[in-house]
Amino acid sequence: MDTPTGGLVRSHCVGATAVVYASDYLNKLTGEKIERECRRQLSCGCRALVIDFSETKLVNSIGISILLGIIDVAEKCGARIVFSDVNNQTVELFEMLGLTRHVVLAKDEREALLNLSRYETTPVVH
């Protein structure tokens, strides 16, 4: 079941993978909520993150900075991270800025989960 946290961020878990849904405009307010949710999921034992951008139309500079922060935290935890359903304009932005060097892009959530299942590890239970 989806869990809305902090009023805006929806998320749910598939095994040891957390799927977090980004909102339509990724700025400071929404970005920080997503970051908090990702941190929460990682601290709960998730070994992989999927951030779903299907509803996201625009990502601004602050959004980029916060996404890099999430990538950083995931790397430090040894967790894998996939961005799914990113629109063309945002894919171009991520490529231009080099975010795609650190994350895998997937067409949709299903493909993201499939991609991660190849690296499935045993979930850590706290």
Binding site: K28, N60, S61, I62, G63, I64, S65, I66, L68, L97
Partner: peptide, 29 residues
């Protein structure tokens, strides 16, 4: 966004934090 943030009269530490994010996010630092 940076111009707007700096001209704002909001909380000081929030202003600096946002400004820093804007700078980092511009070049993906």
């Amino acid at each position: 966004d940076l111009g707007q943030e700096i001209a704002g009269t909001g909380d000081f530490s929030e202003m600096v934090r946002t400004s820093m994010h804007l700078l980092l996010g511009t070049l993906a630092l």
